[in-house]
């Protein structure tokens, strides 16, 4: 376990019914860095991501075993409140899914339910801060009362990021955040991710090896439910130790 690791996973097994989706995953995720999870479809990278904020609890047949700690605390311990955990570990989904409410309400929702802002001015400041952080403020500051669903796809995704960071979580999980976006919107989000790592620890699942190479400092390669290799992104892409990693990044499997 490295000194700066905020998330440590040990011996994580996930089952969907009888089918084992993850097998003995052990992974340390360092603080204030971007860690990308890559691998072919169905390799379990999204499953692992969803273990970190217990979104797998929503799948009735899913069973998680093993040990995942955030800042030393076991998140699957019985006394852990999932609601408090998800306030600390935010999530951005594959498809932009803003609430069918105004832009302002979208961002203010998290702080409101967690009681993070007292009074209207404090909330206004928090909303502005989150939208600025997400690089959306200048585009929407004149139409905060308009529905979030009226924005373009890229803007919607940045709105979802603003919504997530408004709660000021420790960790932001991103599940293929750019897969539904065009290259320009993708580039904007990638820049954004790079800026966000000053304040947040980011774990991103991506299908695109180029994206992983561009945004992340560390990369973990999953294959068929196992963690094959993990290390600094540069090393993974230039001198992978495992043959399967080599095959994947050169395009022979995937």
């Amino acid at each position: 376990m490295s000194k700066t690791a905020i998330i440590t996973a040990k011996d994580v097994d996930v089952f969907y019914g009888d089918k084992q989706a993850l097998d003995k995953i052990a992974l340390d995720i360092p603080e204030y860095k971007v860690t990308s999870l890559i691998g072919p479809s169905g390799c379990g990278k999204s499953t692992f991501l969803r273990c970190i904020n217990r979104m797998n609890d929503l799948v009735p047949i899913a069973r998680v075993e093993g040990d995942i700690r955030i800042a030393g605390q076991d998140i699957y311990a019985p006394e852990v409140d999932v609601v408090a955990l998800r306030a600390q570990v935010g999530m951005v989904f594959q498809k932009p899914n803003p609430f069918p409410k105004s832009i302002y309400e979208n961002v203010a929702y998290g702080p409101k339910i967690h009681g993070l802002a007292k009074g209207k001015t404090e909330m206004d400041e928090l909303v502005q801060w989150a939208l600025e952080k997400a690089g959306l403020w200048n585009e929407v500051k004149d139409r905060l009362d308009q529905p979030g669903t009226g924005l373009s796809g890229g803007q919607q995704q940045r709105l979802c990021i603003a919504r997530t960071i408004a709660v000021k979580p420790k960790v932001v999980l991103m599940d293929e955040p750019c897969s539904a976006l065009d290259p320009i919107a993708t580039a904007i989000i990638e820049e954004l991710i790079d800026e966000l790592r000053q304040n947040f620890t980011i774990v991103i699942v991506t299908h695109s090896m180029q994206q992983a190479a561009r945004v992340s400092q560390r990369t973990a390669f999953f294959h068929l439910g196992t963690l094959v290799e993990t290390g600094p992104t540069k090393n993974i892409f230039t001198s992978p130790e495992d043959e399967r990693t080599q095959n994947y990044i050169t395009g022979r499997i995937g």
Binding site: R86, G90, P100, V167
Partner: peptide, 26 residues
Amino acid sequence: PPSIREAALGMGASPVQATFHHVAPL
């Protein structure tokens, strides 16, 4: 759409909050 439910739960809304703030109004 389930994405609305996921979005609310992912924000740390409790199931009751997700239902009454987001799903039921829709």
